[in-house]
Amino acid sequence: MSAAPPMLAVENLTAGHGPVTVIDGLSLAVGAREAVALLGPNGAGKSTLVMAIAGTLRSRTGRVDFAGRNLIDLPPHAIVAMGVAVVPEGRRIFAPLSVLDNLHLGAIRLPAARGRIGERYESVFALFPRLAERRQQRAGTLSGGEQQMLAIGRALMSAPTMILLDEPFLGLAPKIVDEILATLHVLRRAGLTVLLVEQKTELALNFCDRAYVMQKGRIVREGSAAALAGDPALSADYFALPAGGPG
């Protein structure tokens, strides 16, 4: 691990939906330019964690340090302005609006002059040529893979320093998965920090440097991707630790 302070440091985060606590005293860190995976079964609270970091959950306590600022009390729009972008579970693109409009909305917090938006479009279209071809199309008419590309492209429009992806490969054909992974590699080389939530353990560990394993709202394992990849308990395509496992 690098000696520099982590870009994202979550300390003792407790969060939930209304009165129900989903995450209980969780801590993790993501270093600058790192790619970190967050693994775990359904219901472990992975998506809740993403939403808690992104600011869309009301009830949260603890610290979420990003680039020196505590995000815990900020509303989502302020967090985006700080350079955190989210590709949410289920993509959540704006289906009735065009591809271009969806991308434009991703850049709505862009503080710089209007000229910059052209640059942003170009960079996203360079990464995802398919989107360029379909720029005037209604987003709802795109295929599943294209919608995922749109969701990622939309997140990139705000020129973030860190991106959170929640199960981006769900339901996609292998060919599309490869295309998207290739693009993510390009982004990594360009310096983007990534937190990837996934159930597909092998895929995630192949892409990331480190990983955390979540279960029932807590971190139960952590380690380098290499170390975890060799663990027979995590060997299945879909994560399946026996109930009441270590931690």
Binding site: T56, P75, V86, F94, L105, S158
Partner: peptide, 25 residues
């Protein structure tokens, strides 16, 4: 206008609109 689209976005998916950085309040 982009802000008109933003209002539409809030109507379509409030949570996603918030994630874009649209000030829901």
């Amino acid at each position: 206008t982009i802000w008109g689209k933003a209002f539409q976005a809030v109507a379509i998916d409030r949570v996603a609109a918030g994630l874009m950085g649209i000030n829901l309040r």
